[in-house]
Computed example of a mutant assay.
Amino acid sequence: MTDNNPYNFLPLQPTGRNETNTANTYHPEDMIKIYEQQFLIQVPEEKLTEFLPALKAFYDIDNNTLDVSAIIFDAIADAAIIYNHKVKVGGYQLLGRLVEESIEYDEDNNSEEGVEDKDIKAYTLECQRTFFINDVEIPYHFNLFIYGDGYSTLTKKDTVLEKMYWFVRGRFEEDLLDDSEDNDTLESINERLASLDIRTMDLTTTDEIISYVEDSIIDDAMIDELNKLLDAK
């Protein structure tokens, strides 16, 4: 940290000036780095008003360049920035084998849509998806329940990301099947995050990250592999 670079910005080499000669241009990957720094660098509250002007001055860029970098990030980056945390989806593993489950039908409701076809089979499968928070790899284990064209997941409670899931779910669902009193607190979760050198999170951040995880837990490649397993049954 120096007086010329008080926020430890990453030095990057610009490629020149843009067509209006108002700001340096950068390679797309460098613009992404600048955009990430804008949201990932920890800045003391009393320095917030000075931070953005310092970033623009260090790279000799204008607001339009920052806007463009945001568009590039959204278009090609494989990560999302959620309240000062970069979250990235990693690979997946299908653990074990498909286990066929027996389904009990309510004879009084046979006429309802979705239950008249008793030939539909149900399966469970142990799975794992890897996520990265600020480049720290965190596994996310879950049991996948497949019924017809639908599915649901039940997450374990071992890794910090799994504990975050149950903490968020426990805050919004009063009738949990498991005892929500056994869930970790935000303080204990942040202690686990700190041990991984991941900065603390507030309630909004945990909610948004878990929403991102749930939206990303199943992808097209995983669905293709699951369909191959189901077709082989």
Rank of each mutant, 00 (worst) to 15 (best):
M1V: 07
M1G: 09
D3Y: 15
D3C: 13
L12W: 04
L12D: 01
H27L: 07
I34Y: 07
Y35Q: 09
P44N: 13
K47D: 13
P53N: 03
A54N: 12
A70G: 12
F73C: 04
I76A: 08
A80E: 06
I82N: 05
N84R: 04
K86E: 02
K88W: 12
V89F: 01
G91D: 08
Y92F: 13
G96W: 12
Y105S: 00
E112I: 12
V115P: 02
E116D: 11
D117Y: 12
C127E: 01
T130L: 05
D135E: 10
E137Y: 01
E137L: 02
I138N: 09
Y140M: 15
I146W: 06
Y147F: 05
G150T: 15
S152N: 04
V160S: 12
E162Q: 08
F167V: 10
V168E: 04
V168P: 04
R171Y: 14
L176G: 05
E181I: 08
T185Y: 09
L186N: 15
L186F: 15
L186D: 10
N190W: 06
E191L: 08
L196F: 05
D197P: 07
M201H: 02
T204E: 03
T205S: 04
D207W: 08
E214T: 09
D220N: 08
N227W: 01
N227P: 01
L229I: 03
L229F: 07
A232V: 06
A232E: 14
